[in-house]
Design a protein around this nucleic acid. Structure first.
Lengths: 107, 107
DNA sequence: GCCATCGTTCGATGAAGTACGTACTGCCGT
DNA sequence: ACGGCAGTACGTACTTCATCGAACGATGGC
C-alpha cells in the first residue's frame, strides 16, 4: 500500500477538480467534509461497498480536492480549502452553496 | 432536425453543469463565449470536425451552460450567465477566472 | 505472534462518454 | 429549383469511468 499521493497546489488542474466534483457520490463526501469535521473513509457512504468508496476518495484526493493522512489504523480526510481557494477563488464556495442540504441528514 | 432544447432555470443541475465544464474542449468554448460575443458553432474549434464539435455544443446546451437560437442559416450561442448566477451564484465567475488566458489567442 | 479492522489494489464487467465519417435537414442566394 | 453552407443525426469504434467481489497490506490490541 503505497503512500498517499497529493498534487501540489501548483499542480491543481481545473478540469480535474471539476471532474471530481461532477459526481453525486463525491459531492456527498465534499458536502460532509465542508461541515468542518475530518472524516474517515467509512464514515460517509455506508451504503457503498468499500472498494467503490475507496475509488471515489481517491479521485477526490488525486484531483486535490481533499487531503488524506494516515492516523493509526484509519485515514483522516480534510478539505483542501486554502489550496483550492488559492488556485480557483470562489469555486469551492460556489459549489458548496449550490449543494442541497441533503448532506446534513445522512450518516 | 428537431428544435433546440434547453433546461429551464429550475431544471439546472449542478452535476450536469460541472460535468459539462469538466472538459478542455468545452472550457475553450465557454472561455470564448465569456468574452462577450455571441458565437456560431464553426467559430470556435476549427481543428475539430463538425460532428465532434456539435456534440460538445450540445452537452453545453443541454446542461444549461449556454443558450442556442437559430438565426437564419447559423446557430447563435450565448452564455446563460443570469440563469447560472441565479442557481449557482459565483460558480461561473470562479470557473472563468480560473481559466488560462489561452482562449484569447485562439481563432 | 495472532487476529480483527480499515482501507487499498487487482481484475472483470457493464455503462457511459468521446471521436468521427457519412448522410441528412434547413436555410439562403442566385 | 438548384447548389452550397451550417449544423445535426446516426452508426460505429474506441476509450474512459463506475461498480463490485475478492485478495492483499497495514496497523493496533491482545
Amino acid at each position: 500500500m503505497q503512500t498517499l499521493t497529493h498534487p501540489t497546489p501548483e499542480q491543481l488542474r481545473l478540469e480535474a477538480v471539476l471532474d471530481a466534483l461532477a459526481s453525486p457520490v463525491r459531492l456527498r463526501i465534499v458536502g460532509r467534509l465542508a461541515q468542518g469535521a475530518e472524516l474517515t473513509c467509512g464514515t460517509v457512504l455506508p451504503d457503498v461497498p468499500p472498494s467503490s468508496a475507496s475509488h471515489h476518495w481517491r479521485v477526490l484526493r488525486e484531483s486535490g480536492v481533499l487531503f488524506a493522512r494516515r492516523e493509526g489504523r484509519v485515514i483522516v480526510h480534510s478539505l483542501r480549502r486554502d489550496d483550492l481557494d488559492g488556485r480557483f477563488p470562489g469555486l469551492l464556495d460556489a459549489v458548496l452553496s449550490a449543494l442541497p442540504a441533503r448532506a446534513a441528514d445522512e450518516s
